[in-house]
Nucleic acid binder design. Structure first.
Lengths: 116, 116
DNA sequence: GTAGACAGTGGAGTACTGTCCAAGGTCAAG
DNA sequence: CTTGACCTTGGACAGTACTCCACTGTCTAC
């Protein structure tokens, strides 16, 4: 898959793909003519990148996830472990939001919410 | 309250306070000697700023919240409205996280989660 | 009246995450 | 064999949110 198709399928720009390759978030194989060539699962990897970004990881951290995956003896289990870790973070984030929500809820309608 | 005390109570650096004043996130009253002088509720405002940042607002947007508050005929009601809006956003964010969690949950333990 | 903590300014620098551009190479179709 | 879509590179630029620095002024306590 060339860069244009990957970009379209993953919903990012070509420049973003090149940028991601530069910072090590994407592996760079090449065709004989110099064009980048990506395997289909790169699309899924980019979706994972967006997910992790949503959870507040920096691209550098996400690149490390990728490196861990490549080094793991069992790739599938390693990724499952990463995902379980993301789920834990989601649960934490939801708990934070719930407490923030309760806090805001308590302030709404009080005489002066800013001072509460 | 001078800048040092505000910074300590709000958990930000003095430079951050000065930066926030520069971009209009904070009002700048001055003592006779030129020192900044903040009312106590600025601490609460800074906490609000952190909350809004957590929810993904940029500082420019948050500064607009502040401007809206100042312009509102009923300050307390205006802030309550802002808070209700934040609660709505929190609810949306939690729904997103829940669906993300379900998605990840489904992938964990499958043969190859990345390709799913 | 001096030391030390605190305050002021302007401006430079940083990290992160892209985004754009110019100049040029590749390839399929007509 | 030219056109147009697609690809390459390097490097400049942008927006966000700080962070640091040098130099200077103010105030309190000894």
């Amino acid at each position: 898959m060339r860069i244009g198709e990957l970009a379209a399928q993953a919903g990012v720009s070509r420049d973003t793909v090149r940028f991601y390759e530069r910072i090590g978030l994407l592996e760079g194989r090449r065709q004989a003519n110099g064009y980048r060539d990506f395997p289909p699962e790169t699309v899924t990897w980019l979706h994972y990148v967006r997910t992790a970004q949503t959870l507040g990881f920096t691209l550098a951290e996400i690149a490390q996830h990728g490196a861990q995956l490549r080094d793991a003896p069992d790739g599938a289990e390693a990724l499952s472990a990463l995902l379980r870790d993301k789920i834990r973070i989601i649960d934490e984030r939801m708990a934070e939001l719930a407490s923030l929500r309760a806090d805001l809820d308590a302030r709404v309608g009080t005489g002066c919410p800013l001072r509460g």
